[in-house]
Design a protein around this nucleic acid. Structure first.
Lengths: 229, 229
DNA sequence: TAAGTTAGTAAGTACTTACTAACTAAGCAA
DNA sequence: TTGCTTAGTTAGTAAGTACTTACTAACTTA
């Protein structure tokens, strides 16, 4: 019987502000509701949250907005994540796995320290370019104030990142003697962060990865020991 | 979420259903109301906003919270700034004048370029240390999304800052030949920004000015041309 | 195919928020 | 004193907000 009954399905929430459903409206015959599996929806919700966080800011994002973007009702979102905080937790875990996954791949390669350093930077910038909401989310009060556990998780994660960079610098032979790896780490990570932030605020007015790689090169040039002519 | 319950000062229970008129207030006089001038209050409101922005985040700050901090009612705040946006405008203008004032003083001094560079950095970090809400406000959606004019004003301001740094670098003779002043500017400003941000997030766990000055020194060491031994 | 599970909805609760209206009284000047 | 200006109040509105309740219909499986 496939889809015999539809009854009064076409009831849309009153606050239609966006085109939203592209597929349904285009069909001549009424389409039966397409239910998705919970895990599909969860993924959709996480992706919608990332997109909307970028557009509106994480602290201004309402469940309603996410629901509209996904194309379901607001309580529909809450079915999958009973509390709003749960959405942020899922988003954060998503980001964390994205990051550490990329780092692992680079760190387990056989590149030279300085090459790994460059690769880590490019990977991080590339991820931000693909997911521009990252800086805003990491700095959001949603994480910084409301969720201590998650904030700590990120703290540990970043500490790990610093640790990797620090080790790579210490291993690299071409750097000048007086250079403190801890200082160099802060300068490198700071360059990544500030470039990403400037890219965000400027409305993506330049190529993030390209610019970041260039600035890292200039920075690293200053770390290399002077040629003993 | 949401705390800051009402607890408003001098709240007398109005539920007395006495037949008396509402205007019979002559006998109730107990506290001598302390009225302040508008400009005094405005200053207080701006300062309260800066403090609370630091504690709660600019995007989460309510007029009510400001009112409680200042010690008047919520509409009392709106008397001085009819729209919430007006508060942000005043805060931003306050910050702008604080910054440019400090810069002017340094730039009109007779220090060497590299000394001015260091002084600008220290001044900027010192201002942030004294007014920790600055980074959060500059990055807030309140400014970045809601107030295009103000965002542009800040953009111009920061462009000016970059310009000053850029010029000082170009003037400084001890830097290596290949160094592009524009790149160096981004690295210096980036170091200031990222250090300030890290200081904020870490809960002020180190001395901002001291750390920033140190990192700048390490960075500038890399800019200096190698000693022709 | 009947029966249970679950994605989804409409309607509503309780609360916060920016902003308004109408009034009160402090402070000043004649 | 009188009278004006204005900092401040209480009381209220309309629009959001996260979250709940009670139900429905699509899907799954025995």
């Amino acid at each position: 019987m496939a889809q015999a009954k539809k009854t009064s399905k076409a009831k849309k929430p009153a606050q239609d502000t966006k085109p939203a459903q592209v597929k349904k409206a285009s069909e001549v015959k009424k389409v039966v509701q397409k239910r998705k599996t919970a895990s599909e929806r969860k993924t959709e919700i996480i992706e919608a949250t990332l997109q909307l966080s970028d557009e509106q800011g994480p602290d201004r994002l309402s469940i309603e907005a996410i629901a509209i973007k996904v194309g379901i009702s607001q309580p529909g979102v809450l079915r999958h994540f009973p509390k709003k905080q749960d959405i942020w937790e899922a988003v954060a875990n998503h980001l964390i796995s994205m990051m550490s996954q990329r780092w692992e791949k680079i760190l387990s390669s056989d590149m030279s320290p300085i090459q790994q350093l460059r690769a880590l930077t490019s990977a991080q910038l590339g991820l931000i370019q693909a997911t521009p909401a990252i800086p805003a989310i990491l700095l959001s009060r949603e994480l910084q104030a409301d969720n201590k556990i998650l904030r700590n998780t990120f703290f540990v994660l970043m500490k790990g990142f610093h640790g990797h960079i620090n080790r790579l610098i210490a291993e690299e032979k071409s750097f000048r003697k007086g250079l403190d790896p801890a200082d160099a780490t802060l300068l490198i990570v700071g360059t990544i962060q500030s470039t990403a932030l400037r890219w965000s605020i400027s409305g993506r007015s330049f190529d993030l990865v390209e610019k970041g790689e260039h600035l890292l090169k200039v920075l690293l040039d200053g770390f290399i020991h002077p040629p003993t002519k």
